[in-house]
Write a protein that binds this DNA or RNA. Structure first.
Length: 921
RNA sequence: GGGUGCUUAGCUCAGUUGGGAGAGCGUCGCCCUUACAAGGCGGAUGUCGGGGGUUCAAGUCCCUCAGCACCCACCA
């Protein structure tokens, strides 16, 4: 066995063997357990967020599988409409081609090609993480079966009156030239201006001043509004102004919406290009004048001079022209929120179009109820508040997109514009008894990507067929996802699941935080602070890392700064940490309600943990030959009982934490057990036992405990660190017999409770104090660990003697005293350094070894600490209220504690006095 | 304007129903002790953001202020 752990040597082998062995398909007839992977973009690459999320899902899946559940982790990818279309369009652009040039069919074929080429990348990366998804069930949102589910849901919703086509203002992305849902629009706080424009009164010399942040839209104004109670404008209501430049007369109306305090108290109304104005237009029956093309250039509805200008050009031109006419009163700086498309970054334009909508209110009502009555639980629970908040204010969902990549809307039109919705053209013709010669054309638009994602929990399982998988695995057990898509995805899955699969899609939703960089910054390509999880696993050189970060930057000017910062932060690049260390790191960081900062040193810490585990196994294997499988069961020794008890409680705690999705606590518990209990103490104790010439039965008991504990620890760690645990487990002597048995298929360890654990815990604790005391004196007095020192014991009890009798061999091995002598009652001790074990004093005589002043200083420090604690306990106990009101057991505990503190203090004080006197003598 | 979360050691974070402030990393000292120097042993380090309240007792519950972050929202 290699002296050090080298992850790259073991991971590929096990990935291959697990998959070949069909380990990831659900098997057995245990209670089903199912997790749906949030399908990543098919052409995307794995980022830290995925790795984090996938690590957690895999921990749950592997754990449940080991518990005997028929576990299915359903994999697959999403077609990601806009994102994928943009990527392919950009690729075409580089090749000097364009989507429009190709035409729809050729373009879609091009995207499929792209998907075939690059679609395997993210699934390969998922494999690298050790994700135990059932690859045989991999799905894609545009698979035939899933597309069928999409059409089925669309048709049924339409028939239920929950899908309709409507003409309204939508969020229009003029760069992508498609409608967007509300969720795809992000508000960004930006610095702008507030322009005060003068609108002359019709048939009068007076002017009305309106304030606006978008002067270019004035060409589409169809009214000016004031507050009905605003004294300044009472006389004007009902009259009209002459709209400058456009030379149209528009009315002055009164509406509560207007805030008299803001600007001039007078608002221009552009119903076709502003959501508020649109609503006001409806209230006052105002005409709508659309002045934009779908690329946000001015159209023919404006005077010839402005036609064809972009929004930006139009603004300048309008302002200049107004100014020239003396109609620009003033310009103020003004901060405002600007809506931008989440993909393109373009300023979104409210734009009047025909789109398809889902009526969400009835669906949302059912979806809220499912969370209210606990059929779905958010973990942590506070996310349910966010969910309610949104669901109660939900707007209808615009589901049509003017894209080519996606599920085409199953609606057909005849020449008269009649709409026919159906599963396919044939069905539509049959259903509406349409003549075979009547020309029909299908809606050009595709559905919002999230429409098919919303069906994922049941479409992947075979719906609308009543498949066995659907029957077995739906509702799924838990969804693991980020808070950023609660609205996009989680809420919509709940709505669709309840309506079509007739039950909740999952029973719990575990919401994790965002993975940020070490400084708490969001990772992004443009900031140049992204970290590829695969690079953490395999390691990457500094220069390669820099190169990766500066490649394909939107703003190449940033390359230099990014390079500098990267070199500074990672002068050595990343060392290879291995998948297990990365996974364990994620688990350890997965606490509730907090984003996680990814710090390389922490991963390295867990790589060291892997190495520790590796070497602990190596140690055990050195003794494998001595293990006699046929040895009769001996009475387990003290240390054996102690470690078995610790193993038992560890296993229980880990399972409890996992039930509650406290991955951090589970990981911490395992880390502590393996490193501190098993390696630091038990292996050292076992070493001593095995080295001594004691009875062979005792050695065999130790060996049995050693190997069994190690095997169980590997089992408990397996969901977190699948590769190294599988590798090490195979090497254990008890595993050698059955070479086909893999840990991935093993049962979750359930170590037995130890009957007389209390005694073992107390005695080992006593031993730890004893050994620790001597070590501390050595360390502080600069006595080399190997140098033998005589030890005297004073103030001991029969119990101390009994315990020493049980642990003498270990103490001699671990603390290396030259000799141990029990002082008789009243026997004078030489001046010594002191440690306390309970009330017994462990003394190491000063002669020649110990610095008297240093020991006095040390004692003073100890005494001061004791005095501080003592004072606080005394304070409590001398408080009558505490004694009378606190529970009796708490009071009793404090009394006991005070007695202990006082005894300890007395012992040390006595010791100090002694040294002091001897000094004077 | 509504809503949520965070503030604990130099750094990153645990601290479950109120009852002796913890871990990892870093740091300091000693040690290449035959599983592991990616290691061992030991040490130091905290007005638990500020203020107020409830309580015998508050990092933990309540109020308030401050700072940071995020989400939602139609003020031109």
């Amino acid at each position: 066995m290699e002296k050090s752990y080298a992850p790259e040597r073991i991971e590929a082998r096990w990935r291959q063997r697990w998959e070949a062995g069909g380990a990831f398909a659900p098997h057995g007839d245990g209670t089903p357990f199912c997790i749906m992977i949030p399908p990543p973009n098919v052409t995307g690459t794995l980022h830290m967020g995925h790795a984090f999320q996938d690590a957690l899902m895999d921990i749950l899946t592997r754990w449940r599988r080991m518990q005997g559940r028929a576990a299915l982790w359903q994999p697959g990818t999403d077609h990601a409409g806009i994102a994928t279309q943009m990527v392919v369009e950009r690729k075409l652009e580089r090749e000097g081609r364009s989507r429009q040039e190709l035409g729809r069919d050729a373009f879609v074929a091009e995207v499929w090609n792209w998907k075939r080429e690059s679609g395997g990348r993210i699934t390969d990366q998922l494999r690298r993480l050790g994700a135990s998804v059932d690859w045989s069930r991999e799905r894609f949102t545009m698979d035939d079966e899933l597309s069928e589910a999409v059409r089925e849901v669309f048709v049924q919703l339409y028939e239920q009156g929950l899908i309709y086509r409507g003409t309204r203002l939508v969020n229009w992305d003029p760069v992508l030239r498609t409608a967007l849902s509300d969720l795809e629009v992000l508000a960004s706080e930006e610095q702008g201006h507030l322009w005060h424009l003068r609108y002359p009164m019709a048939g009068s010399d007076a002017v009305l001043t309106v304030a606006t942040t978008r002067p270019e839209t004035m060409l589409g104004d169809t009214a000016v509004a004031v507050h009905p109670d605003d004294a300044r404008y009472q006389a004007w209501i009902g009259k009209s102004v002459l709209l400058p430049l456009a030379e149209r007369e528009i009315p002055i109306i009164a509406d509560d919406y207007v805030d008299p305090e803001f600007g001039s108290g007078c608002v221009k109304i552009t119903p076709a290009h502003d959501f508020n104005d649109y609503r006001m237009g409806l209230r006052h029956d105002l005409p709508l004048i659309n002045i934009f093309t779908d690329t946000a250039h001015l159209n023919d509805a404006v005077p010839a001079a402005y036609r064809g200008l972009s929004r930006e050009q139009a603004r300048e031109r309008v302002l200049a022209d107004l100014d020239a006419q003396g109609l620009l009163e003033k310009t103020e700086n003004h901060a405002l929120t600007i809506p931008r498309g989440d993909r393109s970054g373009a300023i979104v334009e409210p734009y009047l179009t025909d789109q398809w909508y889902v009526r969400t209110e009835p669906l949302a009502r059912e979806a809220v109820q499912a969370v209210r009555d606990g059929r779905i639980r958010f973990v942590p629970d506070n996310w349910s508040k966010t969910y309610y908040e949104w669901m109660q204010n939900i707007e209808d969902w615009c589901i049509s997109r003017q894209l080519w990549w996606g599920h085409r809307i199953p609606a057909w039109y005849d020449a008269d514009g009649n709409i026919y919705v159906g599963r396919d053209e044939q069905e539509v013709r049959a259903k509406h008894a349409l003549d075979a010669n009547l020309p029909l054309h299908q809606d050009e638009d595709v559905l919002d990507t999230w429409f098919s994602s919303a069906l994922w929990p049941f479409s992947t399982l075979g719906w609308p067929r009543k498949s066995a998988e659907l029957e077995r695995f739906y509702p799924t057990d838990i969804l693991v996802t980020g808070f950023d898509i609660i609205f996009f995805w989680v809420a919509r899955m709940i709505m669709m699941g309840l309506r079509f699969a007739k039950d909740v899609p999952f029973r719990r939703v575990y919401v994790h935080g965002l993975v940020r960089d070490a400084h708490g910054q969001k990772m992004s390509k443009s900031k140049g602070n992204t970290i590829d999880p695969i690079d953490v696993i395999d390691g990457i050189g500094r220069d390669a890392l820099v190169q990766k970060r500066v490649a394909d930057l939107m703003d190449p000017g940033k390359a230099k700064a990014i390079g500098r910062i990267t070199r500074e932060e990672f002068p050595e690049g990343f060392p290879a940490s291995g998948t297990d260390a990365l996974r364990f790191c994620f688990a350890a960081q997965a606490t509730f309600g907090r984003d996680v900062r990814f710090e390389l040193p922490r991963v390295l810490g867990y790589r060291n943990f892997c190495n520790k585990l590796w070497n602990a196994t190596r140690f055990a294997l050195l003794h494998a030959e001595r293990l006699d499988a046929d040895a009769p069961d001996a009475n387990p020794g003290l240390a054996d009982r102690w470690i078995r008890h610790r193993l038992h409680t560890t296993a229980q705690d880990v399972a409890e934490h996992l039930e509650e999705c406290r991955f951090d606590l589970a990981a911490q518990t395992l880390y502590d057990f393996v490193w501190h209990d098993f390696c630091d103490w038990y292996l050292e104790l076992a070493k001593a036992t095995l080295a001594q010439n004691g009875p062979e039965a005792q050695a065999q008991s130790t060996l049995q405990t050693l190997f069994e504990t190690l095997e169980d620890a590997l089992g408990l760690l397996h969901p977190f660190m699948p590769f190294i645990t599988e590798e090490l487990c195979q090497k254990l002597p008890q595993r050698q017999k059955d070479s086909d048995a893999m840990l991935v298929n093993a049962a979750w360890p359930q170590p037995e409770a130890v009957a007389d654990a209390e005694d073992a815990v107390a005695t080992i604790g006593w031993l730890q104090d004893f050994v620790g005391g001597i070590r501390r004196i050595r360390a502080e007095m600069d006595i080399a660990p190997g140098r033998p020192v005589p030890v005297l014991l004073d103030g001991w009890t029969a119990q101390d003697q009994a315990r020493f009798g049980e642990t003498e061999g270990w103490i001699m091995g671990l603390a290396k005293p030259e000799s141990v002598r029990w002082l008789a009652d009243g026997e004078p001790a030489p001046e010594s350094a002191t440690a306390l074990v309970g009330n017994m004093r462990v003394l190491i005589p000063l002669s020649g070894l110990i610095d008297r002043d240093a020991e006095l200083e040390r004692l003073d420090r100890e005494l001061k600490k004791l005095e501080g604690t003592r004072a606080s306990v005394q304070g409590k106990l001398s408080n009558e209220n505490f004694v009378s009101k606190a529970p009796a057991d708490v009071v009793e505990q404090e009394r006991k504690r005070l007695a202990e503190l006082e005894a300890a203090h007395a012992q040390l004080a006595r010791q100090r006095e002694k040294i002091k006197q001897m000094e004077h003598a």
